[in-house]
Nucleic acid binder design. Sequence first.
DNA 1: CATATCCATAGAAAACTCCTATATGTAAAA
DNA 2: TTTTACATATAGGAGTTTTCTATGGATATG
Lengths: 305, 305
Amino acid sequence: MDMRRLEVFYHVVEEGGFTRAATVMNLTQPTLSAAVRQLEDDLGTQLLNRLGREVSPTSAGRLLHGYARRIFALRKKAIAELTSLRTGDQGELLLGGSTIPGTYILPRLVADFSRQHAQIRVSLQLAATATIVNDLRQQRLELALIGGEINDRAFEVIPCFSDELVVIVPFDHQWSTGASIAEQELNNVPLLLRERGSASRKVLEARLESRGVSLDPENMVAEVGGNEALKQGVLAGLGAAVISRMAVAGELQRGELAELQLAGGPLQRRFYLLHARRVKLSVAAERFKSLVLSRGRTAVDSLDK
Amino acid sequence: MDMRRLEVFYHVVEEGGFTRAATVMNLTQPTLSAAVRQLEDDLGTQLLNRLGREVSPTSAGRLLHGYARRIFALRKKAIAELTSLRTGDQGELLLGGSTIPGTYILPRLVADFSRQHAQIRVSLQLAATATIVNDLRQQRLELALIGGEINDRAFEVIPCFSDELVVIVPFDHQWSTGASIAEQELNNVPLLLRERGSASRKVLEARLESRGVSLDPENMVAEVGGNEALKQGVLAGLGAAVISRMAVAGELQRGELAELQLAGGPLQRRFYLLHARRVKLSVAAERFKSLVLSRGRTAVDSLDK
DNA sequence: CATATCCATAGAAAACTCCTATATGTAAAA
DNA sequence: TTTTACATATAGGAGTTTTCTATGGATATG
């Protein structure tokens, strides 16, 4: 069943005649005549009773007209929704975040964004960097902010926001009065570490390597699979740890944990905003990207110096 | 938004690629490429992300695909319903009947028809002949069985079924023993009549006129607007009446009323099956028409002799 | 009975659809 | 990295379809 002809038929019924319908559709009457006849041939059913003055649908015609109305209403609605999606009035935004940015950075950005774009549903998935990247590739996510570095030309990667890893000890630790320690001294105390492969641990190891120090396995009290658990371990007095400042900002301020300066200077790390290069961003995602960059770009620029 | 292109887009998403969709649609891949591109231009929105290996919809594309699925499902359903309507498997039949045929003939026919075509909803409207004819003209009814004669080439009129008007008197009436009376004798007893213009009255007046008799207004006890009321009047002993045999068959059999033979022979009248000539009958109506004619045609043939 | 109005038909012009051939790009294999 | 396989994009032309103009036929109205 040809949709164009169905549309002609629909208008003919709606206007109660070929000539009137032709006017509405900006076509000529013979065109509509032919279209309806072809539709009737196609369906093998007479759809209209042609009376002299006007035209009325047969029972088959009434049935079909009901369907046609629903079909063209759907089309109209689809166009309207596409338009409002194109102008960014509504839509869905699927975000991903690795642990630190997903916990301490994105929630605030999402809140601000949602306030400005109440019609856009935002979903934020927290997961390991590798999972996030995979979901981006399969388009289960559109945009993500992660901690690990990505070297894949399939993704557009924009450095964005930064974080400092700090050495923390319990507030009553022997070092808690010392303002600064050398990197090698980390081997002199029980140390809690994140798991091998985590971004935090990579940054720490890179710093130690540049100083010619390697971690003494004897000192590792625990390998912990999460920043919160790591923090709890230090709070419990198990030892020292290197952790994102964002994760312990509260505890440091309240004096529950003490912070030490590393001799080699602050341990900086970057976060990265990324999305699949070939997937066109939705208007919503484009807007969120702008928001993230306007907030997080300046912080990175200072790191580059 | 062109429906043909929407259909192409729908299949491309459904099959996950242009080439596969082209195979399914019996078209070539460049055709689909062009169609989707034109659809995207038309809507001003990118609908598909063309990755190297395969193709996936953008968020706009997913939205549109949902609508497309519903639209084409509706079309499919419409075709299915039209087909079952064309083969007469289901549908609606709007019948009309004037008093006598609508009360004493059509109900039985409708019952038989419904038993054979359980899927077809039948509605039967009883009304005066003029109302029925008007409803046929406006297509509120498809087919009707009436008593009055119609002279309008807009209708196909088929004589069908017949009825006899009989003279009835109360069972204890002075005439109730007499087997036959002359027409002019009707003026010698109180007479109940149907209203002027009713088909029954026209038939009676025509017979009297052919005998050179006219009704004596003095004798008319009542002009009654309905056969049932007329019958009750005679049963109550108000006088004699001329009425359809069908309306009093039970009373005659039970001896509650007595029947007289007119000297001029039985007063026959015909019924007519009719429908608007220009309106194509539905399959259901066509079948009902056949049923009516097979039952009612023979009875009429005998009248023509 | 003439007139106005509406639908059907015929044939030609315009538009579009679809195809073939080819280019380009991507992902997996050598 | 280069090759191979596979997928989409592009260009131009053949074929079909759509649409138009002109005209004829049927019906209701004055």
